[in-house]
C-alpha cells in the first residue's frame, strides 16, 4: 500500500464516497419521482466507482479500473431498463409516482 500516490488523505476519498452514496440513498428513500430515483441510483454507482479507483491507485492494481468500467456499463444498461419501466408505468398509470407501483405487491 502506497499512500504517497494520493494528492489528499485516503480518509477524504472514503468520506466523499460515503457522502455521495448516502445522498443517493436519501434520494431513493425520500423522493417519489422515478427519474430522480434513477439518478440517485446513478449516484450510488458512482460512489462505488470512486472507491474502486481510489484503491486501485493505492494498491497499484488495475482490477479496480476494470471494475469501474464494468460498473459504468452495467449502470448504462440499468438506466436503459429503468427508463423503459418508467415509460411503461407512465403509459399505464398516467402518473409517475413510485408509491403507486404498490399495486404490484403480492
Amino acid at each position: 500500500m502506497d499512500l504517497t500516490v494520493l494528492p489528499v488523505a485516503l480518509g477524504d476519498y472514503i468520506g466523499l464516497s460515503l457522502v455521495i452514496f448516502f445522498i443517493g440513498v436519501a434520494g431513493i428513500a425520500l423522493r417519489r419521482n422515478p427519474l430522480i430515483v434513477l439518478m440517485s441510483i446513478e449516484l450510488m454507482w458512482n460512489a462505488a466507482n470512486l472507491l474502486f479507483i481510489t484503491f486501485a491507485r493505492v494498491y497499484m492494481n488495475n482490477a479496480g479500473h476494470i471494475f469501474a468500467f464494468l460498473v459504468i456499463t452495467v449502470a448504462a444498461a440499468e438506466a436503459a431498463i429503468g427508463l423503459a419501466i418508467v415509460v411503461v408505468v407512465f403509459r399505464n398509470a398516467k402518473n409517475v409516482d413510485v408509491d403507486d407501483v404498490r399495486i404490484l405487491r403480492g
Binding site: 440513498v25 431513493i28 428513500a29 425520500l30 417519489r32 413510485v98 408509491d99 404498490r102 405487491r105
Partner: peptide, 14 residues
C-alpha cells in the same frame, strides 16, 4: 413488512 412501498424496502435494505 411486505408493504409494496419501494421506499420502505430501500430503508430496510439500508
Amino acid at each position: 413488512v411486505q408493504s409494496g412501498l419501494l421506499r420502505a424496502y430501500v430503508l430496510l435494505v439500508v
